[in-house]
Nucleic acid binder design. Structure first.
Lengths: 153, 153
DNA sequence: CTCAATGCAAATCATTTGCACACCC
DNA sequence: GGGTGTGCAAATGATTTGCATTGAG
């Protein structure tokens, strides 16, 4: 059929995450403000990583929100697992949408500032071992490898 | 023999790291200032993690150094692998001495703020795989698991 | 002597906070 | 209507920076 499946898929996900946020806010007795949905929508129009400032700039043209609200809302979105936050070095906080995107870790190439994403099942194994050995529950992890491209003089 | 091997060992290490720093500074054409050695010595009198502020406070009573110098010197000590730096969350930078202490990673228990250290050889395996697959050299990594103690209501 | 290193205070910059107003429930 | 959420501007706090002074080589 002649539909643009890209756009259809996009819209579906936007709807789904909107519902997830609605449910979450209801459950936590938080208000469903237009700002919160506007932010979510903006985030889910992105591919890959973004920072708060980019988000702020981009939104100014559409639905105007303050930085304070952005920071507040990111907390909520993190809490309901609709976004993930990455700390690439001290002053580089990057976010990305999390719904239906695979859990992955990162390699940072310090010569080129490239970021490579990878998945390795052995991390889950390590996690399981640790939970057993120390009798704990592990909720999340952060793993970064720092390196450089080979064969450079 | 009747020697206190603890203290002997301590002193030996202090000497060794002093030599390492000397060599490093010589090689890099940096000056061997008393501040740098005083800081190194202070750090190697600690066990476990410490932050810049603690280091600063503690040193005031002995060899007075400015925060600026502390930050500068930490860079050098990181570069010559005499200290390691850990980023536990955005505003919690902790350091620890690195010479002759085993590479380890951390679990952070968010309910109690406990920090558990562990070593798992599988991380090295992951590293090797990544180096091969992406044709890169990995210098270091940072790995944190975040969790909670079990069986709490 | 010369310039890298130091100390001090001011600057930075992402994030947080306080407060008055707006609007979701 | 009442109180949470918002915007704004000011506050924060770890780290950095500028500059005059010191001291290592």
């Amino acid at each position: 059929m002649g539909y643009n499946t890209e756009i259809v898929a996009e819209t579906e996900i936007q709807k789904k995450v909107k519902d997830i946020l609605e449910d979450y806010l209801k459950e936590k007795m938080h208000r469903r403000t237009p700002e919160r949905f506007a932010i979510l929508n903006e985030i889910y129009s992105y591919e890959g990583h973004f920072d708060i400032d980019t988000l702020y700039m981009n939104m100014q043209e559409k639905y105007r929100v303050s930085r304070a609200t952005l920071y507040n809302t990111m907390e909520l979105l993190l809490d309901c697992n609709l976004v993930r936050k990455h700390q690439f070095g001290k002053n580089i906080s990057l976010y990305e949408k999390a719904y239906e995107s695979r859990q992955h870790d990162h390699i940072i190439l310090e010569d080129t500032n490239e970021v490579i994403e990878f998945c390795d099942p052995r991390i889950q194994n390590i996690k399981s071992t640790l939970e057993e050995v120390f009798d704990i529950d592990i909720n999340r992890h952060s793993l970064y490898f720092y390196g450089t491209r080979k064969n450079k003089k």
